[in-house]
């Protein structure tokens, strides 16, 4: 609160005398301590960071180094991986941790660098909406992925399906 004490005003241009007890409101903390959210966020960043190092490097190794390496990657390769519940779970964990880790990092940067409350609110809203969309979309893709689509009318496979579907 800015308290204006008329006795503490200097004659020139209404400048307050030093130590008249006023503090600019932008320095005053609003007394709404939101539990331990910031601590949880801080711990999450460290734990998810460590987990992501393992998840991402195993992901890269399996995709790029094992077997035919980089030449094996095509639609069929991805479809084959997602037919396995282990890789479904692996990619799901990677998606969620990477998205939440990144979102929390961006939230921190916005908190640090946005100077106006309104721009902070806008930037954070865009951030939260976009990460929610990506997380939901990604999760749906991992679980509803169907490589061998069948034409309901003819009962036959579509032309666009990968070759291995014809062997099933």
């Amino acid at each position: 609160m800015t308290t204006t004490n008329s006795d503490s005003l200097l004659p020139a241009q209404g400048i307050e005398a030093p130590r008249s007890g006023r503090i600019d409101p932008k320095y005053l903390r609003n007394k709404s301590s939101n539990g331990s959210f910031e601590m949880a966020a801080w711990v999450f960043m460290r734990v998810s960071g460590l987990a992501l190092v393992v998840l991402i490097f195993v992901h890269l190794w399996v995709n790029l180094m094992v077997g035919d390496g980089i030449h094996q990657i095509d639609f069929g390769f991805v479809a084959g991986k997602w037919a396995n519940p282990v890789w479904q779970f692996w990619d799901l964990t990677m998606l969620w941790l990477a998205m939440l880790h990144g979102t929390n990092g961006m939230r921190t940067i916005i908190n640090d660098y946005a100077e106006k409350d309104s721009s902070r609110l806008w930037l954070k809203s865009i951030l939260y909406v976009s990460s929610t969309v990506i997380i939901i979309l990604g999760t749906m893709v991992i679980f509803t992925f169907e490589p061998c689509l069948v034409n309901n009318e003819t009962g036959e496979l579509f032309d666009s399906v990968p070759a291995f579907c014809h062997d099933l």
């Binding site: 301590s33 910031e38 601590m39 966020a41 921190t108 908190n111």
Partner: peptide, 11 residues
């Protein structure tokens, strides 16, 4: 210091 504006703001 466990506040939103406490130690967790340190980068």
């Amino acid at each position: 210091l466990n506040d939103r504006e406490g130690v967790w703001r340190c980068r």
